[in-house]
Every structure is written in C-alpha cells, then in structure tokens.
Amino acid sequence: MSDQNGAGQTRPTALPIVINAQYVKDFSFENPNAPQTLLPGQPAPQVSVGVDVRSQQVGETLYEVVLEMRCEAKIGENTAFLVELSYAGLFTVTGLAEEHIKPVLLIEAPRLLFPFARAIVADATRDGGYPPLMINPIDFTDLYRRQAAGQQPTNATA
C-alpha cells in the first residue's frame, strides 16, 4: 500500500492491522502411553489436526484473536500424544469499514500467528520424544467461510 506525497514520490501507508502482543493462552502436551509408543519398531502414528479461530473486542480498536490447535496422534487404538494449544495475539485494527474487520481478524490475524503456534507444536512433539510435527499451512480464508456457514472447525490428517 502506498500513496503519493507532494513531490510525486510514493511512500508506504499504515497497514490496517498492527500486532501489539502475542502469547500462549493455554497449552497442554500429553504423552499418556509412553514409553510403549516410543519403543523401536512402532508404526508411524496417525495424526489428526483440528484448528479453530475466535476473536473478541477488548478495546475501541483492540481485538484479541485466539488460534486454537488440537493435534492427536494414535498408534492403533493407543494415543501416542495429544497437543492442545491456544495461541493468541492482541491486534489493533484501524481504518477499515465495519464489514471488513471480522474477515481481517479471522483470516489475516491467524495467518500472522500461525508460524509461531506451529513452532510451539513442533517443539512440544520433539521434546515429547517424537519427530517434530510440522503442520502444513492452513487456508484461513476457507476456515472463515466454514465458520460463517456454521460448519465445524477444520480437521485434517497428517
């Protein structure tokens, strides 16, 4: 985004979204069947990943956006690990029409939070004795459309 100043030069304009803070709101890692699930010769676990996004207004132009992730790995009927993460950010949104605020909060804000949440999940699974779980990029536009249509949060199998 840019505009022209009086000399005909372009200069960047302020983006409508600013990240004020990022933080872990809630985090859990469970390894309920260790050490059995970590023994050599175990088959690769089947991993399912669920993602949800929610937001709330906490000030005139200040919003909290929470990216919730639930990752469960199973070997047969046994749970290998379970990771639940609520990773949040405080965002200031200015200069947007009212109808554009919600899409920005539920698409762009989680897109900015995702790499950090992904790293936390990868570190937790690695520290739990498993290969790091590298969650594929998420289409937050599709997730927003599903939420708007009243469907369940996105679930994927890795």
Score class of each variant (00 low, 15 high):
residue 48 S to W: 05
residue 113 L to A: 00
residue 69 M to Q: 06
residue 109 A to R: 07
residue 29 F to H: 08
residue 59 G to M: 10
residue 99 E to Y: 00
residue 146 R to M: 13
residue 12 P to H: 10
residue 74 K to W: 14
residue 54 R to C: 02
residue 43 P to A: 05
residue 114 F to M: 07
residue 102 K to N: 12
residue 96 L to C: 00
residue 105 L to D: 00
residue 55 S to W: 07
residue 91 F to A: 01
residue 101 I to G: 02
residue 34 A to Y: 00
residue 151 Q to T: 04
residue 16 P to C: 06
residue 76 G to T: 07
residue 89 G to M: 04
residue 126 R to P: 11
residue 83 V to I: 05
residue 147 Q to A: 08
residue 141 T to P: 07
residue 11 R to E: 15
residue 98 E to H: 06
residue 104 V to N: 15
residue 157 T to L: 12
residue 75 I to Y: 00
residue 7 A to E: 15
residue 68 E to N: 06
residue 152 Q to H: 06
residue 158 A to M: 15
residue 131 P to N: 14
residue 120 I to C: 03
residue 85 L to S: 11
residue 130 Y to A: 05
residue 61 T to P: 13
residue 106 L to F: 11
residue 38 L to M: 01
residue 116 F to L: 03
residue 35 P to H: 01
residue 96 L to P: 02
residue 97 A to I: 13
residue 123 D to S: 12
residue 124 A to M: 13
residue 114 F to A: 11
residue 64 E to M: 07
residue 18 V to D: 06
residue 18 V to K: 13
residue 23 Y to C: 04
residue 36 Q to N: 05
residue 24 V to N: 05
residue 104 V to R: 13
residue 152 Q to S: 05
residue 77 E to Q: 15
residue 149 A to R: 04
residue 128 G to W: 05
residue 4 Q to L: 10
residue 109 A to C: 13
residue 45 P to E: 08
residue 51 V to R: 00
residue 6 G to E: 15
residue 97 A to Q: 13
residue 58 V to L: 06
residue 11 R to G: 15
residue 48 S to Y: 07
residue 136 N to R: 07
residue 66 V to T: 08
residue 146 R to K: 12
residue 140 F to R: 02
residue 71 C to Y: 05
residue 137 P to I: 03
residue 140 F to Y: 12
residue 8 G to R: 09
residue 108 E to G: 14
residue 127 D to Q: 10
residue 30 E to A: 04
residue 15 L to D: 09
residue 138 I to M: 05
residue 53 V to D: 00
residue 128 G to A: 14
residue 41 G to V: 04
residue 32 P to I: 07
residue 57 Q to F: 13
residue 129 G to E: 04
residue 72 E to P: 09
residue 137 P to K: 10
residue 115 P to Y: 01
residue 111 R to K: 13
residue 6 G to H: 14
residue 25 K to I: 01
residue 44 A to D: 13
residue 125 T to D: 07
residue 31 N to Q: 14
residue 85 L to G: 01
residue 23 Y to E: 00
residue 45 P to N: 10
residue 74 K to P: 14
residue 80 A to C: 08
residue 97 A to Y: 13
residue 67 L to W: 06
residue 94 T to V: 15
residue 129 G to D: 02
residue 116 F to K: 00
residue 126 R to K: 14
residue 9 Q to T: 14
residue 19 I to W: 12
residue 143 L to P: 00
residue 110 P to K: 08
residue 133 L to W: 11
residue 121 V to W: 07
residue 5 N to H: 08
residue 95 G to N: 14
residue 6 G to I: 13
residue 55 S to G: 03
residue 126 R to F: 15
